[in-house]
């Protein structure tokens, strides 16, 4: 079942991806082909089969609750495109009603 263009655009928004018109057309075709291929798993009866949560014999790995030194803030921010006063800087996300 082919994906619609609207579904491609919806998934691109979920994935926070801006796509060109050519990419939307191409991905619609390619993703539809991959999903068609993957449809074979729908034929398997899994009514009594639990999903794999992990292949490991481990459960609830905890560390001791002991304070340790952290990476220095300047190292944390060294790769940031924009940083101010020890913080990552981003575009304003809330519009204030009136200036305080």
């Amino acid at each position: 079942m082919p994906l619609s263009l609207a579904e491609v655009e919806h998934v691109a928004e979920l994935a926070r991806l801006s796509l060109s018109e050519e990419e939307k057309t191409l991905f619609r075709e390619q993703l539809s082909a991959i999903l068609d291929y993957a449809a074979v798993i729908q034929q398997v009866d899994t009514s009594t089969i639990p999903p794999t949560a992990t292949v490991l014999p481990l459960r609830n790995v905890m560390r001791d609750d002991v304070a340790r030194p952290s990476m220095p803030p300047e190292d944390v921010l060294a790769n940031a495109p924009d940083a101010r006063d020890g913080f990552f800087a981003v575009r304003q996300i809330l519009q204030s009603q009136s200036k305080p």
Binding site: V11, A15, L17, Q30, L31, I34
Partner: peptide
């Protein structure tokens, strides 16, 4: 992009 979209779709 293909895999991120495929994954986002499979989880949506």
């Amino acid at each position: 992009k293909r895999r991120v979209m495929l994954g986002a779709y499979a989880l949506s």
